[in-house]
Amino acid sequence: MRVLLVEDDKALADGLMRTLRENGYAVDHAPDGELALRAAAEEHYDLIVLDVSLPGIDGFEVLRQLRRNQHQGSILMLTARDAEQDRIKGLDLGADDYVTKPFSLPEFEARVRALIRRNRNERSPQLQIGRLSVDTVSRRACVGEEELELTPREWGVLEYLLTRAGQVVSKEQMLQALCSWDDSLTHNAIEVYISRLRAKLQSAGIRIRTVRGFGYVVEEPAR
């Protein structure tokens, strides 16, 4: 996994580079927009971490040019401004996510992981969370070497949750996404599937936690 970090603040750039390297990514650093564009043209990056306020060409402009040049990787914006308009502008221009300074390191790492995983999912049907590996094409889920037996409905719920691991999903969202294959799906039915999945996933070290009155979240197992 290759990551390009575009950040002009030396100290922050140094810290983020160390962090990304410790997470197992290959990291390049560009201190301004021009260098960033040149680097992105020559190499393939799975993720570009892009600061908004850069000397010379600013982050929004870099973003615009990257997307115009059909850059395929994910882009995570860093900004010291949190006005709603800035956020919307960044996302409109094609950023995938957005982190406001100052941020906590675990939050930054989680966003990076999520973007890398999303990027990978689009190209590969394999999902790996904790000891659970899932093939979304053949619809097989294994804990270690042991294959899980899942009904199609359970499979649907599991896939929906796993592709959003770490995110809180509401029951409404799940119903909307899943009712195409079963119109009679209800809140109660979802609760039943969740409790069955919990039992089956116990050995995989994956916890599906309930958010009271709202929905569920699959906790990413500690790394």
Binding site: D9, A11, L12, L16, R18, A80, P102, L105, P106
Partner: peptide, 14 residues
């Protein structure tokens, strides 16, 4: 202050 604090947070966490 935000950028240096972000740097400080990153380094202290590392």
């Amino acid at each position: 202050l935000r950028t240096p604090i972000a740097g400080l947070a990153t380094h202290s966490e590392l």
